[in-house]
Design a protein around this nucleic acid. Sequence first.
DNA 1: GTCTATAATAAGATAGAC
DNA 2: GTCTATCTTATTATAGAC
Lengths: 195, 195
Amino acid sequence: MTEARRPPARTRLLDAADRVLFEQGIRATPVDDLLREAGVSVSTLYTHFGSKDGLVAEVLDTRLHDWRMVWDRCVVAAHDDEGRLLAIFDAVATYREEQHHPAGWCAFLAAADELPSAPAAIAQVLASHTDLLTERLLHLSRPLAQNQVKAQELADEMALIYTGVLASYLRGYPGSPVEGGRRAAQAAVQARRTG
Amino acid sequence: MTEARRPPARTRLLDAADRVLFEQGIRATPVDDLLREAGVSVSTLYTHFGSKDGLVAEVLDTRLHDWRMVWDRCVVAAHDDEGRLLAIFDAVATYREEQHHPAGWCAFLAAADELPSAPAAIAQVLASHTDLLTERLLHLSRPLAQNQVKAQELADEMALIYTGVLASYLRGYPGSPVEGGRRAAQAAVQARRTG
DNA sequence: GTCTATAATAAGATAGAC
DNA sequence: GTCTATCTTATTATAGAC
C-alpha cells in the first residue's frame, strides 16, 4: 500500500477548520477541537495564523475564492439571460455538494452573526463577499429589466431570495430551499417582464 | 417628581438581556455585561434562570409571544387574501419598530446558529417558532392556490423570502429588505395566479 | 424570601519559554 | 512540537443586608 503523504500542518489545520467551524459553530468550536482534528499543536495555530480569528479569516478567504469560481462556472454554463441570473442557485447546490460539506448554512453570515466585532481581516472578507453578490446580481439583472431602477430592484430581490435559501438551511425549513428559491426567483423575473 | 418604581431584579435582567443579547451576539455577550446593564448581581441570574442558557430561553419565549401577537394583529388588519399572506412583512416592520430594537436580525436564527447544541428549553422555543411560521403560512396560502401542492409551494416560497428578509438585516444588504421581500412575495403570488 | 457582594472553580484563548 | 502562564468568562459557594 502506497501511503498518502501527509500535508503540512498549516494545510491540515486549514482543512480541519473548514470542516468543523461551520458545522459546530465558530464560537462553539474550541481551538482544541481543531488542533486534535488536524493533529497539530497549539503553536502551529499561533505561529501560522496569529489567533483563532486569523485562522477563521483565512478559511473564509478560501471559501470566498471557491464560491466565486463555482458561481463563475455556473453562469458560464447557462445559455440565456434568465439562466445566468438563476445560475446562483445551481452554484449554491454545486458548492454545497462538491466543495464543502452539506451541513452548515453560510460561513459568511455565520461569521457576521458570531463575530460582530470582527478584526479587520474578517470584516474585509465579509465585505468582499457582499460586494461580489451585489455587483454580480446587478450586472446579471440588467438584461432582464427595462431600466436601471428595475434592474436594481430585481437584483435586490435576488439577493433576498439567495440569502433566504442559505438561512433556510439554518432554520431547517423548507426542506429543499434551492428549489423554492429558484421558483421565487423565476416569479420575480417574470413579474418584471409582464409588469 | 414622582420617582418611577424600579422593577424587580428578574424583570430588569430579562429586559437587559432582550436589549443586549441580539445586538452584541449571544455568545459574544458576557453575563457580566447583562448584570451591569440590569444592575443585578450574579446570584440573581443563577437563582432565577439557572444558567445563561436559561435566561436566553426565557427571552426567546417572550419574543415568540410578542411576535405571534404582532403577526396576528397585522393579519387581522388586512382586507383580502393576498393582504393577509403579505401581512407578515408588515409584522416584521412593526415588530422591529415597536416591540424591539431595530438593530440585530432575528433572535431565533441567531440562537440556532450560536447554540447548535442548545438545551431542550431553547430547542423547543425554536421549534415552536418554526411551527408557527410554517403552519400559518400554509394556512394563509391556501386561498391563493388551486390545490394543496401549489399552496405548499407558495408557503415554502414565503418562508424563504421571509427568512431572507431577516438574514438581510444581518448582511446589511439590501438596505430595505421588507420592501424587496414584499415585491418578491407579490411576484410569487401572481405567478401562482397566472401559471 | 429576595437581593447584593465577593471569592473560588473550571474551561477556553492567547502568549511565550524551552 | 511540549509545557507553562495569563486572561477572560461561566458557574458555584459563601456570607451578609433588607
